[in-house]
Design a protein around this nucleic acid. Structure first.
Lengths: 333, 333
DNA sequence: AGGGGTTTCGTTAACGCTAACATAATTATA
DNA sequence: TATAATTATGTTAGCGTTAACGAAACCCCT
């Protein structure tokens, strides 16, 4: 494969001009059936594959989108990634995957690299960037969709799960089952899920006529070890806690481990609820009560919104909110 | 961001030629400190970002690699993906992610799309393609590394886990603990792990002086439901089975579910062993005995081999085998 | 038969960079 | 001091496509 065959080769070989070959490849109509067949035969024989690079330079479109997320190996994001790649594949787009490893400096760096690659659009998940930095970065992309981050500016699409409702349902459920000291292991405040789940927690308590104490809210990294550490800290400081509402299922798994280590029975002494309903949730012992977030669909919707934007019809429906569903299992019956 | 600023803008604005700007950007030495500073200042002021597309066309390198895998949301592959993106980021490469969803037609289609994108190299994980189809596809890439697939042809890198050794250790462990009728839930035969784990199973039995019965080997899709179905089938057909060696941890989880459904106690009636040691494995009840495969490292090594190849020094060390480690837990003590 | 419309194809000039060579200005060497 | 070597910059010609325009050949109608 040392030297690639080019369109000129195909043109020469089939005795037509460059443009005719180009037209055949792009399915333009003004080519006679005769020459079309002849050119296609040559293309096939030479195993010619057009250069997307050259085409991109000429058309100013790359057929490429960027996907940036804090951690591909987090089951939440890997499901989103699957949705994005699948929806992109359907429309003949390729996807640049970038995993920022929860590092906002790296996130910005990755965005710059995508800029140079001239992607047609960006899907940015759970950005950890501050508002003004994010605004500046987004301005350099022809179009963009944010997943799990609320954004006022027009021209930027937004796809969110209905986190607040989910959180309210879960906390209401905990209250309904008699829990009165509900701790919160809170997630990244920059993300929509982080702030909306906190808000849902607060509102559910307020609605039921309970006060919301800061001492019951513990910040927490959104992974198993984050949940373990935070739960150990919180349970030590507030031993009277009888329920833990966790930012996500991974954190809830950590909380389960903390309870085991402290000899607190789940759900008898402490009820535990997670969020997202990743596959793990149903498999834990006790199985996790949680809230199902359609992660794959989140990725698909984000891609659809983005491609719509790319195709020039932006405007309407720029903020998609997908519903969630409470799933009651043994950890908080 | 409607119309992008180009190198010509920077050149005009700073009163130098295109080449001087190009030299500054690419860190070439033959530019005086004076002009370098002046050009850099203009670049910064105009927020200029060079077009990777144009550069790629001129240099015939894209700074891009392709990553193709059967399923991004499988925790095994999402860890590999994290390794690849991280190693690529270090060397300023971007990664095209393609998830074939276990569909070989789609896999081939994705490879073609990557060809048009003119990637500098390909990392193909657990390809489901037949040998001759794969050979034809690989011929069109400047360089390639296969993960989890043995490949004879020179010029193609290969990264494998030492699956056979791992399988032998696990099966030997099962035998050592007194199990005598060990069923195998076998994985994709096209992949190295599929065939090598089968071989390890057979050899371990042979070494211990036991015969290997075909009736104890059940083909199985490499996911939880595949394991559930296959284990139900196998345990029904061969009720005397006292251990299940599973292709991977997801399959093992399915096997656990099957045992529960059939009222077989684990590990008392049936011991269950998985493979890979995905995070889930340690969290199951009972926790899974398994074999740790360094998935992240697999991705990193694959990328390093690939980038070495791209940089022109191929040859040596084209087949990397990474060691695995047995992890004994409650499901097969 | 001549004007206007289709169809089908070709020519030219970008797209935004860099490789390779050319040139001018400076410094070192004999 | 003349010449060669060095440093700093510019010029030209691609890289492999497509957009935009143009032109020939054919058809239809009056």
């Amino acid at each position: 494969m040392s030297i690639r065959t080019t369109m000129a080769d195909v043109a020469r070989e089939s005795g037509v001009s460059l443009m005719t070959v180009s037209r055949v490849i792009n399915g333009k109509v003004d080519v006679s059936e005769d020459t079309r067949q002849r050119v296609l035969e040559v293309i096939d024989r030479l195993d010619y594959r057009p250069s997307g690079i050259a085409r991109s330079l000429a058309t100013r479109r790359t057929g490429t989108i960027g996907l940036v997320m804090p951690d591909v190996s987090n089951p939440f994001f890997s499901d989103v990634a699957r949705g994005v790649t699948t929806a992109a594949y359907r429309e003949d787009y390729n996807v640049f995957l970038c995993s920022s490893e929860e590092d906002s400096h790296r996130e910005l760096d990755l965005l710059h690299s995508l800029e140079e690659k001239r992607i047609d659009g960006l899907i940015l998940c759970s950005s950890r960037l501050a508002d003004e930095v994010l605004a500046a970065a987004l301005a350099n992309f022809p179009s963009a969709v944010l997943v799990n981050r609320r954004w006022r500016e027009t021209g930027v699409g937004t796809v969110l799960a209905d986190d607040e409702t989910g959180a309210r349902m879960l906390v209401a459920h905990l209250l309904h089952s008699g829990r009165r000291r509900i701790g919160l292991l809170a997630g990244p405040p920059m993300s929509h899920s982080g702030s909306a789940r906190l808000r849902g927690y607060q509102r559910a308590l307020a609605t039921a006529g309970f006060s919301c104490e800061d001492a019951l809210v513990q910040p927490c990294a959104p992974v198993v070890n984050g949940g373990l550490d935070a739960a150990l800290t919180l349970l030590a400081a507030q031993p009277q806690i009888d329920a833990l509402f966790c930012y996500n299922d991974l954190v809830a798994v950590g909380a389960l481990q903390a309870c085991a280590r402290l000899g607190r029975r789940v759900p008898d002494d402490v009820a535990v609820a997670g969020f997202d309903d990743i596959p793990l949730a149903a498999l834990m012992t006790p199985a996790l009560t949680t809230c199902r977030v359609p992660r794959y669909e989140l990725g698909v919707r984000a891609t659809e919104v983005l491609l719509t934007q790319i195709d020039g019809r932006p405007g309407e429906c720029c903020e998609v909110v997908v519903p969630v569903e409470m799933v009651v299992r043994a950890s908080a019956p």
